[in-house]
Amino acid sequence: LVRYRTISKIPQITLNFVDLKGDPFLASPTSDREIIAPKIKERTHNVTEKVTQVLSLGADVLPEYKLQAPRIHRWTILHYSPFKAVWDWLILLLVIYTAVFTPYSAAFLLKETEEGPPATECGYACQPLAVVDLIVDIMFIVDILINFRTTYVNANEEVVSHPGRIAVHYFKGWFLIDMVAAIPFDLLIFGSGSEELIGLLKTARLLRLVRVARKLDRYSEYGAAVLFLLMCTFALIAHWLACIWYAIGNMEQPHMDSRIGWLHNLGDQIGKPYNSSGLGGPSIKDKYVTALYFTFSSLTSVGFGNVSPNTNSEKIFSICVMLIGSLMYASIFGNVSAIIQRLYSGTARYHTQMLRVREFIRFHQIPNPLRQRLEEYFQHAWSYTNGIDMNAVLKGFPECLQADICLHLNRSLLQHCKPFRGATKGCLRALAMKFKTTHAPPGDTLVHAGDLLTALYFISRGSIEILRGDVVVAILGKNDIFGEPLNLYARPGKSNGDVRALTYCDLHKIHR
């Protein structure tokens, strides 16, 4: 019993810090008490220290592992850092350059016999395009090294910054494609005289377009951006097909006994025919423009016929181009109408809503002055909100995010209106959640004399007048207030005048 009563005193000691020596009952000389009392004092002292730490809000209350900052290894790049964003855009520009100039170089340097010394005699450094290609190869190699040090988000939505895990993730992902696209074939085969082989191998750079397509997928929600990307894709495919079309004609031209190829026909049409040795002929500019003209006309199913396939190889390629053109029509131009419709969806919704308003007016036989006010209010409210119901949009977000959005939407009023000066951010967040926005066209009466005042109004834009009878008592403008002081009276009061809008007004109100 003594032991039980001794232990039962522990909660009292913990909360009230009572010393055991003052209790005459606990001072009985028993061996059990002498053993338990020192333990009680020690526990009391420890609990006292913990309570003191909690009340003082000291940093040592938290466990040590929670006080440590997340460790980022040296030379690790955050995937959302500004440097990584700028670097990704730079790589994107280099990939676009590669997609345009690599097929052009591979096709127009394929057994090209233009006048001038061969590239091997001039030297590697004197070729501007080769120098640019070398810079692109170096940048792609540097990009691989950067990807080995860039964080990523795993399946659990955690940012991984450990170098080993980053390397394994990159090896399992895009490393092989990036490595093949970054191989400097110019340096590996330079001086061997195989410019045709170098041009063909350099087309491996186009593998990076797969990554670019995935990154550009984030802009699919913007109709104008999608339309622009589709047109660029169409032009890029036409450019690639033009390079292939020229390569076919250029390879067949020296081996044909009869002059029936499209390059021969082009030379005869523009007065620059090929001679018996295969030299001469149109310039590279004429060849490229004509090839691009043929691919565009074939892809769009126009086909004027002034550039036509004559050999079997050219006919087979033309059939493939027609098939590609039909697929592009289905996948690209078939979506253009939907994209344009999405661009004008706001206008369509406006006309639909206006039609419903006019049908309501016609069905209920609203008189002319009231009908005009109804239409003007709808037009003004639509121009202010673009038909978007803010309350319906915010309803799907958590309250903390709703408060931040409301604070942002009402920031101008909260910053410049005098009653809100000096208020804490928590108070402003709470008030912003209570605001209701209303609009009024010129001549609209917001409050009639004798109406119950259940709200306090803040003028965000425009001006109003307060009338008693036919006498203008006051004219209020931006950041002015009218209405009933909230919670100042037990019952809502009545208006002693009319409140009429002089201009288009936007008002925020808080109800009782």
Rank of each mutant, 00 (worst) to 15 (best):
Y274E: 01
L109G: 13
F175S: 01
K172V: 04
G281P: 03
G271W: 01
K272I: 01
I366W: 01
A155K: 14
T203N: 11
A213W: 03
Q68Y: 06
W89H: 01
P419D: 05
E359V: 01
I361E: 01
T120S: 12
G278Y: 01
R342L: 13
A125L: 15
K418T: 05
V210D: 05
V307Y: 03
L394H: 03
V160E: 14
L206K: 01
V357C: 04
L94Y: 01
V321N: 01
Q269S: 05
A423R: 01
L413G: 01
K215E: 04
V212C: 06
P309D: 01
C126R: 01
A392D: 13
A167I: 05
D268A: 09
L229G: 05
Y377D: 12
K66I: 07
D133Y: 01
D133V: 01
H448V: 08
L216W: 04
F228G: 11
I183K: 01
T203P: 01
P128C: 15
Q341H: 14
I237L: 13
D444T: 06
L370T: 01
L176F: 14
S297C: 04
A130H: 05
I166D: 01
C243S: 01
H264T: 03
H448W: 03
Y350F: 06
K285M: 13
G426S: 05
R358Y: 03
R429H: 01
H79K: 01
G278W: 01
E196S: 13
R71N: 07
R74M: 05
F360W: 01
P273Q: 01
R205V: 03
W382S: 04
T385S: 03
R71Y: 14
V160P: 01
I339L: 10
T437S: 08
K395G: 11
L343I: 05
G261E: 01
V393F: 02
L134F: 06
T120G: 10
L428K: 15
I332T: 03
W87V: 01
F101L: 15
E221A: 05
I361V: 12
G249M: 01
G164S: 10
C126Q: 03
K418E: 12
G164V: 13
L92G: 01
L145P: 01
E221M: 04
R259T: 12
S331D: 01
I324Q: 01
P369T: 04
G249F: 03
C243H: 01
L370M: 04
N410D: 01
G443R: 03
G267P: 01
L236P: 01
T290F: 01
M328L: 14
V160W: 01
D257Y: 01
L78S: 07
L227N: 01
L279K: 15
T113Y: 04
L134Q: 03
R214C: 04
R214E: 06
D186L: 09
L78V: 05
R71I: 14
L201P: 03
M231N: 01
I166L: 08
L67A: 04
P369V: 03
N275M: 04
I340S: 03
Y80K: 03
L263P: 01
R165S: 08
S220R: 05
G249P: 01
V159P: 04
S345V: 11
I284N: 04
F108R: 01
T295K: 01
H416Q: 13
G223C: 11
I144A: 01
L187P: 09
V447K: 01
E221L: 01
P419T: 09
T347L: 06
H73N: 05
W174N: 04
H416S: 10
